[in-house]
């Protein structure tokens, strides 16, 4: 475990908790894409199926449980408890266009043609594009609440920190995983314009609004 990976996991955890708290405290999921949250729940489910069969460390198992629990709780809050505040008019990105290609690619390009490995690969490909419905929603509404932009910044930073973690592991252990690396690069690239807006606007106290 190196510092980049630890900070990456921390950033990911902060993002997930920020979102859950935002919805719970404001009792509203306005500006949040339920579809992205469904995709994240699928990502964690398909990636952590080895939760009980494959013990790596207390840290690893407990973080997986937290991620899965929080992601399902978030989906429940959006589509269950606070569905009256769900912005279904704008949250219209066709997630089947993300699910099907990820599934096909997972069958074609993977490290090992076993069920667990193909599901892991599917979760990696899906995670790289899972934020698209959320970014699409922000672009359609033209703005995002400040707390939502903090959520997106933490979420985007997590995979950026993982890229640094893989760089570190390559030079220190000669370890690399092209599937995770290339997906992580795509995932991080999708946040670039958001990162620019966040740093140039939100950090100066302005609201995150996209140029109309």
């Amino acid at each position: 475990m190196n510092v980049f990976r630890f900070l990456g996991d921390l950033s990911h955890l902060v993002a997930i908790v920020i979102l859950l708290l935002k919805i719970w405290k404001t009792r509203s999921c306005s500006g949040i894409s339920g579809r992205s949250q469904i995709l994240f729940a699928i990502v964690f489910t398909t990636r952590y199926l080895d939760l009980f069969s494959n013990f790596i460390s207390v840290y690893n198992t407990s973080m997986k449980i937290v991620y899965i629990t929080c992601s399902y709780a978030t989906v429940y809050l959006i589509y269950g408890k606070f569905k009256a505040t769900y912005d279904f008019n704008h949250d219209t990105f066709r997630i089947e266009f993300l699910l099907v290609p990820s599934a096909i690619l997972a069958f074609l390009v993977n490290h090992d043609f076993s069920p667990l490995e193909i599901l892991w690969t599917f979760s990696i490909y899906l995670e790289s594009v899972a934020i698209l419905p959320q970014l699409f929603l922000v672009s359609k509404t033209g703005e995002a609440e400040t707390i939502t932009s903090h959520y997106l910044f933490a979420l985007g930073s997590y995979r950026l920190l993982y890229l640094l973690n893989w760089l570190w592991r390559y030079f220190s252990q000669g370890f690399y995983d092209l599937i995770a690396l290339l997906s992580g690069i795509l995932q991080t690239v999708l946040y670039c314009d958001f990162f620019y807006l966040y740093i140039s606007k939100v950090l100066k106290g302005k609201k995150l609004s996209l140029p109309a």
Partner: peptide, 10 residues
């Protein structure tokens, strides 16, 4: 499981 199939990252 052999090394590479074992994913130790989250």
């Amino acid at each position: 499981a052999d090394g590479d199939a074992l994913h130790d990252e989250l």
